[in-house]
Amino acid sequence: MTSFLNAMPGAVAQGLIWGIMAIGVYLTYQILSISDLTVDGSFCTGGAVCVVMMTAGYNVWVAMLAAALAGMLAGLATGFFHTKCGIPAILSGILTQLGLWSVNLAIMDMKSNIPLNVNNYDVLISLRYLQEVQKGTRPFWQHPILVVSVFTLAVIGVLYWFFGTERGCSIRATGANPNMARAQGINTSFNQVLGLALANALVALSGSLLCQYNGFAEINMGRGAIVIGLAAIIIGEVAFGKLFRNFGLKLLAVSLGAIIYYVVIQFVISQFKMNTNYMKLISALIVALFLAIPYWKQQYFHKKGKVRQNA
């Protein structure tokens, strides 16, 4: 139990970082009703761009902005495949994701791993900072949990504002009912591309934070990101759905969902001494289960209805 408690702050920090990615997934999955698999690639793109820029001497903020823009481009690519080439959204995302594998390696100078030594660069967050704040050798306001929390709240604030504007409302309408949206003069294709770009910018931003936190960028860092994103959305919905009605709070629930996900995983790892290589299988099964529940519920109620009719 002590090992779990000791690992808690790290798990929360990781959850917060991935939570920003999950908010990006929320934009496509819940608002645009698109399952965007680009994220598995664009997460790493964000990390790769950030590390390469920082090691080239750029300021951390410039590097993160560049990472977000790179993610945006990845989203644009998926949007182009989907709206201009008529490729189904899910396949468009898979194509971009596959292509990004090479792009990410190219960004990282064909190396699968690039270190970002916290001693040599002025990073925003780091696992090292977390330990140093706990030891008392660093001011508390540099604690990664605090820094990423502020970051998350800022992201939620901006999104809350944006989705209340005319353009933001039209994006929500595009996802809710594209027929209605077009009948009301909304360019649904443009909005889908815009939404995908925005979502992947957030995903890449999250990737840029994670590589700073870990101290390296790695070609596999985004593998399974979409599943983690969906898990965070589902956990957030299950845990806070009844409580949080407001759009901003719903985004907050996604972030909290990601934290819960990482805390639970940390618990499983430290309590059962499980090989971490099994985590992806477990995550996949848990997400599959939660996605299946609404369907099973419907099937069950449907049958019940039929019985009543016959009686």
């Binding site: 944006f162 209340g164 504007t165 005319e166 353009r167 933001g168 409302c169 039209s170 009301q184 003069g185 909304i186």
Partner: peptide, 11 residues
């Protein structure tokens, strides 16, 4: 707002 461009003004 049918027929108008969707801006960043309040929805």
């Amino acid at each position: 707002r049918r027929g108008q461009s969707r801006t960043l003004r309040a929805g």
